[in-house]
């Protein structure tokens, strides 16, 4: 099912949560809504579900205008952040609930068969008789997914699906959700504030800030070509340096960076720690090592430039550096964005 949002607006009291968002989600696509808290991502998801109604604009499911269809009739599967499992029902009871209340009548045997099938799909065979408070967080998450899938939704919506889980469980569930998606091919939209999760899981990432879409594209697109300082900073660690651009070049220390099509004047250059290197010889930006943090896959050097800016570098484990060393930061890659006023 293809979903289209056309200039959707939502205001809470005086606070405008979503400003004219337009978005196309292709049938069978797995899309992440990524943004910091307060960016309106959950509100958008809830409007697609029908749990909130848009103040303006339209939401289409396929060709049908679904803007005013209530959640009960919208045919979406919604997985809540804290799962919202019914505590007084067993796991099987939870999964069967949607089929039992459906207007389409199913026989008890049919429902049982479907519950067994879904329990197998989410790898929880044999746990059907447990209650939600008797299973782990990761298992609850999968019950919530099975319950949402039981009603054969046209669209699957997940609100911070892995937010409440610890790191290892999170990674496993992510890969597993991707497998389920490939197996079933349901159009899926999920909300997250975790860039890693969005990039790991989604076909397409939609980045939101203050109720607006700031960039969307494949994980590769948004990682390689962030279109703004906000996206650059939000997707990962980035060093920020104020620079002066003159005739298409930005000068950082003695290093010159390309800033093609930039007007002369002040700008900001953003540097990923991994795009920097440390050397005891020129050329580069003269700097002093303040501290070295060792990690399993390398070293992070915290350095201060001659100009007083702090830089963080991720370098190979072999690089020799100690607090107080003087040397040069080499820049392999950088992005220049106009400096934001204020």
């Amino acid at each position: 099912m293809k979903i289209r949002l056309d200039n959707v607006v939502k205001t809470f009291d005086t606070f405008r949560a979503v400003h004219g968002v337009s978005l196309d989600i292709e049938s069978g696509e797995l899309v992440a809504l990524l943004g910091p808290s307060g960016s309106g991502k959950t509100t958008i998801l809830r409007m697609v579900a029908g749990l909130e109604f848009a103040d303006g604009g339209h939401i289409y499911f396929g060709e049908q205008d679904a803007t005013d269809i209530p959640v009960r009739d919208r045919g979406v599967g919604f997985v809540f952040q804290h799962y919202a499992l019914f505590p007084q029902m067993t796991v099987a009871g939870n999964i069967a609930f949607g089929m039992k209340v459906s207007r389409v009548k199913r026989s008890a045997a049919e429902i049982d068969a479907r519950v067994t099938e879904l329990l197998r799909l989410v790898r929880l065979e044999g746990l059907g008789d447990r209650f939600p408070n008797q299973i782990s967080g990761g298992q609850r998450q999968r019950v919530a997914l099975a319950r949402a899938l039981a009603v054969d939704p046209k669209v699957l919506l997940l609100d911070e699906p892995f937010g409440a889980l610890d790191a290892n469980v999170r990674r496993d569930l992510r890969r597993w959700l991707r497998e389920i998606h490939e197996q079933l091919g349901i159009t899926t939209l999920f909300v997250t504030h975790d860039q890693e999760e969005a990039l790991d899981l989604a076909d397409r990432v939609v980045i939101l800030d203050q109720g607006r879409i700031v960039q969307q594209g494949t994980p590769e697109d948004v990682c390689r070509n962030p279109n703004s300082a906000f996206v650059m900073k939000f997707l990962g660690d980035a060093n920020q340096l104020a620079v002066e651009v003159s005739s298409g070049k930005a000068l950082v220390g003695q290093a010159e960076l390309d800033a093609v099509n930039f007007p002369d004047g002040p700008a900001n250059v953003y540097l990923r720690p991994r795009d920097l290197d440390w050397s005891s010889d020129a050329p580069g930006i003269a700097a002093t090592v303040m501290r070295v943090i060792d990690k399993p896959d390398g070293r992070r050097i915290l350095a201060r430039t001659a100009g007083g800016d702090n830089l963080e570098l991720d370098v190979a484990p072999e690089i020799e550096a100690r607090a107080g060393d003087e040397g040069f930061v080499r820049v392999h890659r950088a992005k220049v964005f106009p400096s934001v006023p204020g």
Binding site: L51, V76, F78, A84, G98, V101, R147, V151
Partner: peptide, 11 residues
Amino acid sequence: DLEEAATSLGA
């Protein structure tokens, strides 16, 4: 959450 979940499941 629970009421919303039930309604989204068609109750």
